[in-house]
């Protein structure tokens, strides 16, 4: 707990401020501290260049391993390319996806949303551990 937050809680305990005022002060404190906290992130933003997918599995007693490294720039370029897909093709793709039991409306996916998704991939790490396989997806 920061000293300023403790001061606010002390003032609330002493009855100098109301609970609502204390809440507003803490919210303002968090707003001020948000950019500073982000800059202390373990991985510096902008340094992440690749999406890695690593799979270690055992198929019928034989070990199998997949190690894929894809540049994030390729994902961004793919998003721009996907934005050029004509609407009639998206409607057909929607119908096929729906028939396959995946009811996703691709027309609702906007390029900006996909770009934002790719932009924030560097914060993502997915690890799946099962007795037969280990999967790791992360950015580096």
């Amino acid at each position: 707990m920061t000293e300023q937050r403790r001061d606010i809680l002390d003032m609330l305990a002493a009855g100098k401020i109301t609970a609502e005022e204390a809440e507003q002060l803490i919210a303002a404190l968090e707003r001020d501290h948000a950019p500073a906290t982000a800059s202390h992130d373990v991985r510096p933003k902008g340094k992440v260049r690749y999406l890695r997918v690593m799979v270690d599995a055992t198929d019928n007693g034989e070990p199998s391993r997949v190690n894929v490294r894809v540049p994030l720039q390729l994902l961004r370029a793919g998003v721009r390319l996907a934005a050029l897909v004509p609407p009639q093709a998206l409607v057909k793709a929607n119908a096929s996806l729906s028939d396959s039991g995946v009811p996703i409306d691709l027309t609702q996916l906007k390029p900006e949303q996909l770009e934002a998704l790719v932009e924030h991939l560097d914060d993502m790490t997915v690890e799946v551990d099962s007795p037969d396989a280990t999967v790791r997806v992360f950015c580096e």
Binding site: Y50, P63, R65, V66, L74, R80, L81, L84
Partner: peptide, 27 residues
């Protein structure tokens, strides 16, 4: 589809391929 936009996007994809690596082992 905009020809220039499409060719530009395709060129971006080709350019961005640098650094890609696929390593697959089974047995």
């Amino acid at each position: 589809i905009g020809v220039v936009r499409a060719l530009g996007a395709a060129w971006r994809v080709i350019s961005a391929l640098r650094g890609a690596r696929f390593d697959i082992e089974q047995g």
